[in-house]
């Protein structure tokens, strides 16, 4: 009889403990340094997954959309930054794109993914929270970019064709340099190869990486508050519909990632820029001293069934 009680108690304890997962804690200074001088300290340098095999697929221009340089590809590609995407519009309108389409509306577990939950919180733009809103990645071959294990798995093949309008992967981001704030937007746009990474498991339990690359995208560095005009926008809303993956990935996606390569670093000042002010001292500008990073704000994931 006594053993029975003990067993019940142990079961309750075991169930309670198994309900929880150990939360990742950070130091308050990790990735939260304010100011251009601390630019490099904020680079995200953690990776969950080390793949044993990499497969690369280069997307054709008809397969992805880019919110800035829209080629009339589809509805998402035609989004207007000012009225459709930006929930922080100073005039208070817009369709609340971020808050209504963030993945945490569908899967609450994405809110509990540590610092990377900044990518799923619905803040599509910098809202003044600065360093507390973004994930900053650089182009380093080993440590650049980010990847993470997903709290739930995604079976892309199961729901192909259904609920098409919401089934896309997209990231909203902007370029940034550690050139001084006032002058950064005079830089000519950088040319970047973006890579959306997806991780699957092999039969032996190791990770396999499938990269989907979008080549030669122009992105400006840090336009401050000037992103409210569509023509002159430092933000890039880049993505593709989920069925693009169907031909390439046959098993469940257990992890995602994102990284980039700089094809053409911004090396000169754009004197044609309407805001260019020759009186401001630009002597400090030396391309070799400065690096180009990406500020990631929101990663939109498909609203399909997650397992």
């Amino acid at each position: 009889m006594k053993n029975k009680h003990l067993f019940t108690l142990a079961s309750i304890l075991a169930i309670t403990l198994s309900l929880t997962s150990c939360v990742k804690t950070y130091n308050i200074n990790d990735y939260n340094h304010v100011g251009v001088e601390n630019f490099k300290l904020n680079r995200f340098r953690e990776k969950d997954i080390t793949p044993i095999k990499k497969v690369e697929t280069i997307l054709e221009s008809t397969q992805y959309f880019n919110g800035v340089h829209s080629d009339n590809f589809n509805d998402l590609g035609n989004l207007n930054y000012y009225s459709d995407l930006d929930n922080n519009s100073p005039n208070g309108y817009g369709v609340q794109f971020g808050p209504t389409n963030k993945i945490t509306n569908k899967e609450k577990s994405f809110a509990d993914t540590g610092i990377l939950s900044r990518l799923f919180d619905g803040y599509t733009f910098c809202d003044g929270g600065g360093v507390y809103r973004r994930i900053q990645i650089d182009a380093d071959e080993e440590l650049g970019g980010f990847n993470m294990k997903l709290p739930k798995e995604l079976d892309i093949t199961r729901s192909a064709g259904s609920n098409f309008a919401n089934d896309y992967f997209a990231i909203n981001m902007r370029g940034a340099t550690n050139f001084s704030d006032s002058g950064a937007h005079w830089l000519k746009p950088a040319v970047i190869d973006f890579s959306f990474d997806f991780y699957t498991r092999t039969e032996t339990g190791e990770y396999e990486m499938h990269s989907f690359i979008v080549e030669d995208v122009e992105i400006k560095a840090d336009a401050g508050d000037r992103h409210y005009s569509d023509e002159d926008n430092a933000y890039v809303f880049l993505g593709f519909y989920a069925d693009v993956l169907n031909d390439h990935i046959k098993s469940r996606i257990v992890g995602i990632g994102f990284h980039f390569d700089v094809v053409n670093n911004p090396t000169s000042i754009d004197v044609d820029d309407p805001d260019y002010n020759p009186e401001v001292d630009v002597d400090e500008f030396d391309p070799s001293m400065h690096e180009f990073n990406l500020f990631l704000y929101e990663y939109f994931l498909p609203f399909q069934t997650w397992y």
Binding site: V23, K24, T25, Y26, N27, N32, S117
Partner: peptide, 10 residues
Amino acid sequence: SNVIYYDGEM
């Protein structure tokens, strides 16, 4: 000085 993140908030 330890913090956690939940839904993007510290």
